[in-house]
Nucleic acid binder design. Structure first.
Length: 395
DNA sequence: TCTGGGGTCCTAGGACCC
DNA sequence: TCTGGGGTCCTAGGACCC
């Protein structure tokens, strides 16, 4: 049985590239998407020009501001990115139904047995890449391999804008330093470095058991394309880092109320029911705590969830005698409406539906909980800024 | 003047039941 | 009156990814 052929494809400096496409005067300039250099936050995407100054995604905006003082800092237009992202994936699906979306700008495709229309798999990959670039108007990088890991690493080697085929996957891999391997993060890296290991081949030679567990499963799993697993559990969360640390209890509750309102509307719109709720706080010293509790019954009702959320937050703030920098709320154990037992009623649902209708018509903030209204009075602008800043990182 | 937001997966300990 | 071990559920926290 021949090994599967996997294509990995992603959009180069996605958010920054979109901004340049929409405003060609930005071409060739260091564009940094994520926020303003005096804000709390991190860089989402830096253009290649900005990267030359040492700016990269995940870097605090203030640091980026120092490294690249004349950089062009943008908040980002996430609705635009998500539209382009959908075009990108639709385009890929024209070539194969087996497309695993990994994020807004990245996917794996199974090309096994698909290339009979082309002289070779490489030609097919080339065609997919060119078509995607023409469709969205942005440069993409792509990698071919015999495993997802191989394909992903090939893409890394192909950046920016190239297509790379890892033929001798195992040889290629063993030369790499460990931080290049997805799944090996800062923590694991530190431990492995402490053991005197820097490259994959050293790991294989000195600690074959670890190599077998960490690396090998990615390579020759079963001889067929590894399907993306459906997530074992789903969750949805909303969180906010305050512009300034917050000590006021009422204001904290107002933020929580606002975030929970957003989650509740999201769940209701999708007819999803939460079984558990988690509240998260981060104090000014960055220490972070969470507290979860099961809900009495699966629900999307704000009132029902608020009772629980409020209690969790009360308990959490007692952990430290410090102001807070973040509050967040998450729902878990998600059930779909059709899977619910018929006796689970939706308390207060008539009222909820009415409220959502008003939100739909006049905007999310047109009607809100009395608690969350406090935020409007205190800093309407800043709150709006927080609402808009929801996105994932792109490289 | 550090350190976002939205996810998934895993581990470990305690409670509880048999 | 004391003592097992296994299974399962629940919660807290950490590692990692984009």
């Amino acid at each position: 049985m021949s090994p599967p052929v996997v294509l990995h494809i992603d959009i180069d400096a996605f958010f920054a590239a979109v901004e340049v496409m929409l405003d060609p005067s930005l071409k060739g300039k260091p564009v940094i998407v994520g926020g303003m250099p005096d804000e709390r936050g991190v860089v989402c995407t830096a253009s290649y020009e900005a990267r030359r100054y040492g700016v990269h995604s995940g870097m605090p905006l203030r640091t980026a501001g120092k490294k690249c003082p004349h950089g062009i800092f943008l908040r980002g237009r996430y609705h635009v990115y998500s539209r382009i992202s959908r075009c990108f994936f639709d385009c890929l699906r024209q070539f194969s139904p087996r497309v695993d979306e990994m994020s807004v700008d990245e996917a794996y495709m199974d090309l096994s047995g698909m290339s009979y229309l082309y002289p070779s798999v490489y030609d097919m990959a080339q065609k997919i890449k060119q078509t995607a670039e023409r469709t969205i108007g942005l440069k993409v990088s792509a990698g071919l391999g015999f495993s997802k890991l191989g394909a992903k690493l090939a893409t890394e080697a192909a950046k920016p804008g190239g297509l790379f085929f890892v033929g001798q996957e195992r040889d290629f891999l063993s030369q790499l330093s460990l931080e290049k391997i997805p799944g090996i993060g800062p923590h694991t890296l530190l431990i492995l470095q402490g053991m005197g290991i820097r490259r994959v081949w050293e790991l294989e030679k000195k600690y074959p058991a670890i190599w077998k567990r960490v690396i090998a499963p990615h390579l020759y799993s079963s001889g067929k394309y590894p399907q993306k697993r459906e997530p074992a559990s789903r969750s949805f969360s909303r969180e906010t880092t305050f512009p300034r640390d917050l000590a006021n209890r009422d204001l904290l509750m107002a933020h929580l109320s606002y975030l929970l309102d957003r989650l509740s509307v999201y769940l209701a719109d999708h007819r999803l029911f939460a079984g558990r709720l988690e509240v998260k706080v981060r104090f000014s010293d960055f220490s972070t705590f969470t507290k979860r509790a099961a809900l009495d019954f699966p629900t999307f009702s704000y009132a029902e969830m608020w009772r629980v959320a409020q209690g969790l937050l009360e308990a959490l703030v007692k952990k430290r005698k410090l102001p807070l920098r973040l509050v967040g709320v998450k729902v878990e154990d998600i059930t779909q409406e059709r899977d619910l037992l018929p006796f689970v009623s939706i308390k207060g649902e008539k009222l909820g539906a009415g409220i959502r209708e008003i939100k739909e018509k006049y905007g999310f903030s047109s009607i809100s909980t009395a608690r969350a209204m406090m935020l409007e009075d205190l800093y309407p602008r800043e709150k709006e800024g927080i609402v808009l800043k929801t996105a994932s990182l792109t490289k």
